[in-house]
Computed example of a mutant assay.
Amino acid sequence: MTTSLVTGATAGIGREFALQLAARGDDLVLVARDLARLEALAAELRAAHGVDVEVLPADLTDRRALGAVAERVASTERPVDLVVNNAGFSLKGSFLEHDITQEEAQFDVLARAVLVLSHAAGRAMRERGRGAIVNVSSVASFIASGAYSASKSYVTVLSEGLASELAGSGVTVTALCPGFTHTEFHQRADVDMSRLPEFVWLDAPRLVRDALADVAKGKVVSVPSPLYKAAVAALRVIPRPLVRATSRSAHRPSSVAGTGR
């Protein structure tokens, strides 16, 4: 029986991962801050799919709580076969408008938690000779749009480096880089995204199905949809001064650096 651990499991892309992994028969370890929502989701998945679901409430900005999640990931008695590092949030407005404690909290969730859990998972899985790590990054990792973009760039590059380190070990690492996705992500950040045309938005169920297919293929960077594949291909070759120029609008006070989760 496969066991999958998902952080940020109660909403958005994380919830969709939990739903699809349970539907395929995986036992689950669900990580999020809200215990009530965790327990409600766990009960739903047990009833619908008959899988074992463990809830692990944790605020990933808290190093002790993050350490407890890392211990669960590294367990040899109850091994985790797939880790989905999905937890995240974005801040409304620009980098210099925020109190530094807000930026530190965002960095802790977006980057430090991925570092710690990827390290724990990579070691444990390499020892067993099997496993997969999915780090939810963003198309924003290829642009220059404040601390959110920088943190996501860190996640993408960390994933690529770890994938190279684990090559041939039986363990894969995938950076999932979605664009704007229909979830509650932007509502929680209090950002009005209504001006964006519908064609730029991704459907979370399709996104996760495609991501899991890429994980099965051992793909290192997974970019969903032809639109965002083309955008990332262009961003990889466009001169960085032009990338910076086209990213400036993301620094306006009314904007948010995140894409969607």
Results as ranks from 00 to 15, higher is better:
residue 147 A to R: 15
residue 221 V to P: 00
residue 204 A to N: 03
residue 130 R to F: 05
residue 75 S to K: 08
residue 107 F to P: 08
residue 232 V to L: 09
residue 111 A to S: 08
residue 20 Q to E: 12
residue 52 D to H: 14
residue 107 F to L: 14
residue 96 L to F: 13
residue 31 V to S: 10
residue 252 R to H: 12
residue 54 E to A: 10
residue 49 H to M: 01
residue 43 A to M: 02
residue 211 A to S: 14
residue 229 K to M: 12
residue 148 Y to C: 04
residue 45 L to C: 02
residue 137 S to C: 05
residue 98 H to Q: 15
residue 119 H to M: 07
residue 171 V to G: 04
residue 88 G to W: 10
residue 27 D to K: 03
residue 229 K to T: 14
residue 134 V to L: 07
residue 42 A to M: 03
residue 253 P to Q: 05
residue 240 R to G: 11
residue 234 A to R: 04
residue 38 L to F: 04
residue 140 A to F: 05
residue 7 T to N: 05
residue 222 S to A: 11
residue 131 G to A: 01
residue 240 R to H: 13
residue 10 T to P: 06
residue 144 A to M: 08
residue 102 Q to V: 07
residue 106 Q to K: 06
residue 60 L to P: 03
residue 29 V to D: 02
residue 47 A to F: 04
residue 126 R to H: 03
residue 84 V to W: 08
residue 142 F to V: 00
residue 100 I to V: 15
residue 222 S to H: 06
residue 227 L to K: 00
residue 257 A to D: 14
residue 34 D to V: 08
residue 203 D to F: 05
residue 209 R to G: 05
residue 178 P to S: 04
residue 111 A to Y: 04
residue 128 R to E: 00
residue 39 E to S: 15
residue 127 E to T: 11
residue 178 P to M: 05
residue 204 A to S: 13
residue 47 A to H: 10
residue 219 K to V: 15
residue 258 G to W: 10
residue 41 L to M: 03
residue 151 S to E: 14
residue 134 V to S: 00
residue 176 L to Y: 11
residue 17 F to Y: 14
residue 1 M to I: 01
residue 44 E to V: 03
residue 210 D to E: 15
residue 62 D to W: 02
residue 183 T to C: 09
residue 194 S to Q: 08
residue 78 R to S: 15
residue 41 L to G: 00
residue 95 F to E: 10
residue 200 V to E: 00
residue 137 S to H: 04
residue 111 A to W: 02
residue 208 V to T: 11
residue 156 T to I: 07
residue 224 P to I: 08
residue 103 E to R: 15
residue 165 E to C: 01
residue 60 L to I: 01
residue 151 S to D: 15
residue 89 F to L: 10
residue 53 V to K: 02
residue 120 A to H: 09
residue 30 L to Y: 12
residue 211 A to R: 07
residue 89 F to H: 03
residue 231 A to G: 03
residue 219 K to S: 09
residue 234 A to S: 11
residue 67 G to T: 06
residue 63 R to K: 12
residue 201 W to F: 12
residue 162 L to M: 11
residue 95 F to I: 10
residue 49 H to C: 03
residue 20 Q to N: 09
